[in-house]
Nucleic acid binder design. Structure first.
Length: 561
RNA sequence: GCGGUCGUAGCUCAAUUGGAUAGAGCAACAGGCUACGAACUUGUAGGUUGGGGGUUCGAGUCCCUCCGACCGCACCA
């Protein structure tokens, strides 16, 4: 929040308030240099904002936190600017709790009305950060499990952008290696089966039904052409067709799921462009590779890995890790910090990436976010998902069943470090209980009020849009809602900093709850133009914050439902 | 066997990274519309944070140890 001056009083921002309290502490104990931060306390009855500085000072000051808190609060209140912003300051159990003047909160609403969709934006950090998430193999459709990573990754990307980061999102298409061979032979078999149902399916193939329509598409394009081509000669071009078709399908589902990427990076393209050699050559130049048993190794044990890892096999072929090395080297060229979303089965990679970052002279540049597993259930039955076994529930099926909004909100809502049980029966049955509708209902309710206002209170609505008359906002329910809206920026910042997108749906729910309570307590459209104007302003600001929060979650904000 | 992640209300999950009396939703029970959308709202009940020990002003959070769940331990990808 920026400092704002009105005619009668000077209001301090939270940062300025913090600076005054820090100065007060220094005046009392010159040997300390405390960091003061005012945040919304856990419980509203503790005040509007609170700080716990006194605890940190207890040792140096050789006093009880409570006495320190009292002394600092008293000292800070000596300053007239502090007194004009703070309505009440109390020291409780070592915390300093502040109740701020209504004008402070009215100012927040004015800012929200002025800034609209830009409300809550952080100042640009100047840091370019790469986010890779999703990255399924191009051998099948996206499945439910990817819905979680897609939702979480996309929401984190959008939120970090709002918080001021320069975010670059990417997806690696794993289209190099033996799995492409298996895919090609699988599709070849499916294609032959269109003409001869008895044609054998390869043992190591991908048996799911999803390749059948792909085979039909191949026949539609090429007719009987491949019947006369041997499997050896057909595998590569057919694998290419399968890969292109399946990736296009993945991209379509991601798009439908409101997930956007800046780059879909083909691993094969990296090979073809010589990126593998480049990345490894860089390591060689840095002198961090060594030869043993005819293979080339990277000393990952220095970063705490169990054993060193092979980069180039003794037969000269690069390992999968070599591909990763190359890809991450590419990422380092375009970003100062690189984040990977990985499943729990890849946790062994963390040490490897640490070692790699060290080797490149960019320690700490690689960050891994582990997204815990999803166990799929249908009722009491646990479903094991396997592309090999051909049992899969696609993301698209789930979207068809519960809708994009409910699915996105559900997946984002959960912290990534908590394993999740997804019950398909329950998801279907409870999709109507999804909190997303509670939030969307709040948005639609406001839209409805605004429609009515446009018809019956046009003057008040115009004044409200200009941010006029907000000084009339004094009701506890009005101020509670305003305080919540003020927390939007800090919430966005905390989501970005802690990589914790699940706080966003929670916040959206709190905004909606505060709005519904306000709506219940205060009639918006009244005979009194001043009251109507101020409350319409609060409604518009709330609608903006709800819409922005939902947009960050990849969820729509309907005007009616 | 070694290593990793996790364990919070009947269910699904929070707890702003070590801070105040561990909070929400769902389910249960009891209330609230002749006014702007009741997909709303007010209240009640629900807990030894898997067990035990430790660190300190202060622990769901950090350390140790058991129990339990899941996942890794390739010159596979």
């Amino acid at each position: 929040m920026s400092p704002t001056t009105t005619e009668e009083t000077t209001l301090l921002s939270l940062d300025e308030l913090a600076a005054h309290f820090a100065a007060a502490a220094r005046a009392l104990w010159p040997q300390v240099d405390p960091v003061v931060q005012f945040e919304a306390p856990r419980r509203a009855e503790f005040g509007d904002v609170a700080t716990n500085v006194a605890f940190g000072l207890a040792r140096v000051a050789r006093k009880k936190p409570q006495e320190i808190a009292e002394a600092i609060a008293a000292r800070a209140l000596d300053h007239p600017a502090v007194r004009s912003t703070v309505a009440e300051a109390t020291a409780v159990a070592g915390f300093i709790n502040l109740r701020l003047v209504p004008a402070f909160w009215q100012d927040v609403i004015a800012a929200a009305l002025r800034e609209g969709a830009a409300f809550g934006r952080g100042t640009p950090t100047g840091e370019r950060i790469s986010l890779e998430f999703g990255s399924a193999n191009p051998t099948g459709p996206l499945v439910v499990v990817q819905g979680r990573t897609l939702s979480v990754g996309d929401t984190l990307a959008k939120t970090m952008r709002h918080a001021g980061y320069d975010v670059f999102t990417e997806w690696i298409i794993n289209d190099a290696g033996s799995q492409m061979d298996a895919l090609g032979r699988s599709l070849y078999a499916r294609y032959r089966q269109l003409f001869d149902p008895a044609y054998p399916f390869p043992e190591d193939g991908y048996p799911g039904d999803y390749l059948i329509p792909v085979a039909e598409a191949l026949r539609a394009r090429d007719g009987e052409r491949w019947l006369t081509v041997s499997i050896e000669d057909a595998t590569a071009p057919i694998a290419q067709f399968a890969r292109d078709t399946l990736v296009a399908g993945q991209q379509a589902v991601a798009h439908r799921f409101h997930v956007g990427y800046d780059l879909w990076q083909s691993e094969k393209a990296l090979h073809d462009a010589g990126a593998i050699e480049r990345g490894i050559q860089r390591l060689r130049d840095l002198g961090v590779l060594y030869e043993k048993d005819g293979a080339t190794w990277l000393r990952t044990t220095d970063a705490g890995d169990d054993e060193d890892r092979v980069v180039i096999r003794s037969d000269g072929r690069p390992t999968y890790f070599a591909n990763d090395i190359a890809y991450h080297y590419e990422k380092l060229q375009r970003a100062g910090h690189v984040v990977d979303f990985l499943g729990p089965d890849h946790h062994g990679y963390i040490k490897r990436l640490d070692a790699l970052a060290n080797a490149y002279g960019r320690p700490g540049a690689f960050e891994v976010i582990l997204v815990q597993q999803i166990t799929l259930k249908r009722g009491d039955e646990i479903l094991s998902m396997s592309k090999r076994a051909g049992t899969l529930i696609t993301l698209e099926e789930v979207i068809d069943e519960v809708g994009v909004d409910a699915a996105r909100f559900f997946f984002v809502m959960l912290s990534t470090d908590q394993p999740l049980t997804f019950d398909l029966e329950l998801a279907k049955k409870q999709s109507n209980d999804n909190p997303v509708y509670y939030v969307q209902y709040g948005h639609a309710r406001i839209a409805s009020v605004l429609r009515k206002a446009r018809a019956l209170h046009a003057d008040a609505l115009v004044a409200a849009e200009r941010g006029q008359g907000l000084a009339a906002l004094t009701d506890p329910a009005e101020l509670a809602l305003a305080r919540r809206l003020a927390d939007f920026g800090p919430t966005v910042a905390s989501v970005a900093r802690a990589r914790a997108p699940h706080r966003l749906p929670k916040y959206a729910r709190e905004v909606a709850a505060d709005f519904h309570q306000f709506y219940d307590a205060c009639r918006v459209l009244t005979d009194d133009p001043a009251t109507t104007t101020s409350r319409l302003g609060l409604c518009i600001a709330t609608k903006t914050v709800l819409a922005t929060t939902l947009a960050l979650c990849g969820v729509s904000a309907p005007d009616s439902m």
